[in-house]
Design a protein around this nucleic acid. Structure first.
Lengths: 233, 233
DNA sequence: ACGGTAAGGTGTATGCCGTACACCCGTCAA
DNA sequence: TTGACGGGTGTACGGCATACACCTTACCGT
């Protein structure tokens, strides 16, 4: 039961992920190798593969850890404040882990924690009275500000061929990310799973661009100057 | 002079860069290795090092090539149209080379072509009557939309210690990127070389965020719906 | 015509990387 | 007691960027 003092507590997935995040924070994402990580954990490189399938999955897990650090949505706040606070919290988190936005961007499928974050942001807009339509475009326009980069939209995973399996997966998705599904179905009938199916990227891009340009014009005409005040109409 | 049919035209830096861009376009940036590139050029890997110092410099060069494809600023257009056109052209270019925004983002110093592009955009705003101050914030807010990602600002290169060398470098920079220098000096007296020195990232972030949030609010209150029209107040 | 120089290309080798595969050991259930 | 299994090991392979020494060719001033 008790064993000699020299025995290391056994690894587990969580300890591996946290060590990886710490190592990336300290030495940069380029210096994060399976070998370096193993060394820091006092273990041989191959031991890590008992806890993560491969390096991609390690990165996936690190993203989950980091995104999990973003503050939960403030309860009882007005939509604008709630969104603002949440996004600034996300920004703070990504600044603490400088490598994270590049890694998130490099994921080939949307990490669940990211979907959960977007789902709750959508919920905030909807609770504030935004239509599903407007919420949709607004989420695109915010993409950048949420993550410090523009994800033009994660690729939609192709659903399984078997109809039963597909229905099951869809059901699970809807249970987990109700607002995403709500918004997606309201926007287009093809039921975009990842919240991005069937939408027109070019339109979304121009929507956000014009929103900014119009804002610039308004500030310009109003003779705006940076008195370190919040810009407003 | 003329030589046997079997002789390959000698490589040069430009042919290497163009081949690299083409290879990245076709097979993705991950599959772009010095070895693959050399093979495509019918040459041994080490031959490439006669034309680029190392892989980082290869990537720098590829960025220059791609950014060079962005349309020049339209002459005689009103600022808003000019900016809009230019940014949509940049977007098109980056969509054609899907790897490019990640690579630009990964550069440790601002590529000259990027500075030139920003310089001319700044010039467009200034010609449209924008103050240096407003132009500065507006450029930050646009960061994203220009490149498909947010570059929080390229790190400012540290100037050489020798005063003469520093003055010379500053002069060259000012000659090449007049609008950047103009704006930077107007904004802060410490003469931010790369256009980013001495500015408050957090303020810039919130500036852009609030601009968007205010825009959302306006659309929301106006009962906006996506009739595929350009959003406006 | 000749030797020198240098630019362009080659070949070999080193030290990283991710990870496949066979193995070994301790724990615990049957 | 046995046997399966979870966690850790050791070895090995192929791919990567790239250092270094070398060779070939073209062109230069003499």
């Amino acid at each position: 039961m008790l064993q000699g003092e020299g025995r290391r507590a056994p690894l587990n997935r969580d300890r591996v992920l946290r060590a990886a995040v710490a190592l990336a924070d300290e030495t940069g994402i380029d210096a994060l190798s399976m070998r370096n990580l193993a060394e820091r954990l006092g273990v041989v490189p191959m031991a890590l593969y008992k806890h993560v399938a491969n390096k991609e999955e390690l990165l996936d897990g690190m993203v989950e850890v980091v995104v999990g650090e973003i503050d939960p949505p403030p309860r009882g706040a007005e939509w604008k404040d709630a969104v603002r606070q949440r996004i600034l919290s996300a920004r703070g988190t990504l600044l603490r882990h400088g490598w994270a936005s590049a890694v998130i961007q490099s994921r080939t499928h949307a990490p669940p924690a990211v979907l959960a974050y977007m789902d709750s942001l959508i919920g905030t807009f909807r609770a504030g009275g935004f239509s599903a339509d407007l919420t949709h475009h607004v989420m695109h326009a915010l993409g950048i500000r949420m993550w410090g980069f523009t994800q033009e939209v994660f690729p939609t995973p192709q659903p399984p061929a078997d109809p039963d399996a597909r229905a099951a997966m869809f059901g699970e998705f809807a249970a987990r990310y109700p607002h995403i599904v709500d918004m997606a179905t309201a926007v287009s009938d093809d039921g975009g799973m990842a919240g991005g199916a069937g939408c027109d990227d070019q339109f979304e891009f121009e929507f956000a661009l014009d929103l900014l340009l119009d804002g610039f014009e308004r500030l310009h005409q109003g003779g705006w100057t940076s008195a370190r005040s919040v810009p407003s109409a």
